[in-house]
Write a protein that binds this DNA or RNA. Sequence first.
DNA 1: GATCCGATGCAATAGATTTGCATGAATATT
DNA 2: AATATTCATGCAAATCTATTGCATCGGATC
Lengths: 164, 164
Amino acid sequence: MAAGPCTVANNLYCDQAMCEQCNYARLLKNADLEATANRLHVMEVVGGNNCPLTAAEIFHTISRTQPINQVTVYRILELLVEQNLLERITIGGRAAHYGMAPNEHHAPHPHFICTRCAAIDCLSPECLSVDMENLRKTFSGEVERVEVRVEGICRNCLKGGGKK
Amino acid sequence: MAAGPCTVANNLYCDQAMCEQCNYARLLKNADLEATANRLHVMEVVGGNNCPLTAAEIFHTISRTQPINQVTVYRILELLVEQNLLERITIGGRAAHYGMAPNEHHAPHPHFICTRCAAIDCLSPECLSVDMENLRKTFSGEVERVEVRVEGICRNCLKGGGKK
DNA sequence: GATCCGATGCAATAGATTTGCATGAATATT
DNA sequence: AATATTCATGCAAATCTATTGCATCGGATC
Ligand SMILES: [Mn+2]
Ligand SMILES: [Mn+2]
Ligand SMILES: [Zn+2]
Ligand SMILES: [Zn+2]
């Protein structure tokens, strides 16, 4: 079953997820990457969506208007994650999801996954604060990233019973 | 490449991860599940390890002493996760990992994954506190679980350069 | 023009998990 | 006792996701 994209309207959800401010070509150039049509399409699809997408979803979205190979999508996604333009988000299902990596326009934020209908939503950065002082002080390794995932039942499923 | 289990000794790591206090047969009975030999083996392997394991790792561990089918392991894992005896932990790689679910002997805790050597470790419950007040107050759905995953470079990799 | 390189396509493969179907043991029903 | 039901398990095949190997092609470089 595919995760329905962002079906749950809620004042907590992050409106920074969709990006009208990012200049994708410039982001690519800054990372020393050629701004090919395919890479721009991937960036536009991911940045233009308000919740993280799977490689398959990205592929199908692009395919509606442009010819592209699925392997190309995988390779571009891997490259862009490596270069910190995109972020790979692990939702719990089998497929990885991709969203904009934190940058000047996108603050890191937790994600919510409904255990009933599998809907995914970006939560606002402020809705949940993580105190890492204790960790930073005592952890002997180097912390690069903290990913927070909230699981539960979405508003839709609570009232309507949710799709399916 | 397989994640090396728990190579990083650190005072932050959770010593509650391994379980000598849980009575697996009783846990199964309480969940109205027959305490079959295979189910007990799965519980023992997971509970006896100090970090979460993949289905393949659990299967191979059991197989060293008992005949069991890999599909059986998958089915048992799914069942025990459903019944909240085990917890499915999404590490980022392709394979899911499994650990004891929170119970009287096991507090929920974050996990650390080394981005260099893929080592996984259970962090102590206290090392990182999450303030969910704001979330609970404003979130219109129901929160069941909050999973925190810390990514970074482990102590081993920082000094030695890490395996591989 | 010859050569090199990076991006892409296509086919095959790999890895993880799930599904379909059969069996056999235990329990319940007639 | 015979029959039916249930459930755990095994085995084979299928499915889903992602990766790898190899060919091509256009642009940059020599
Ligand atoms: Mn997001
Ligand atoms: Mn753990
Ligand atoms: Zn839902
Ligand atoms: Zn490491």
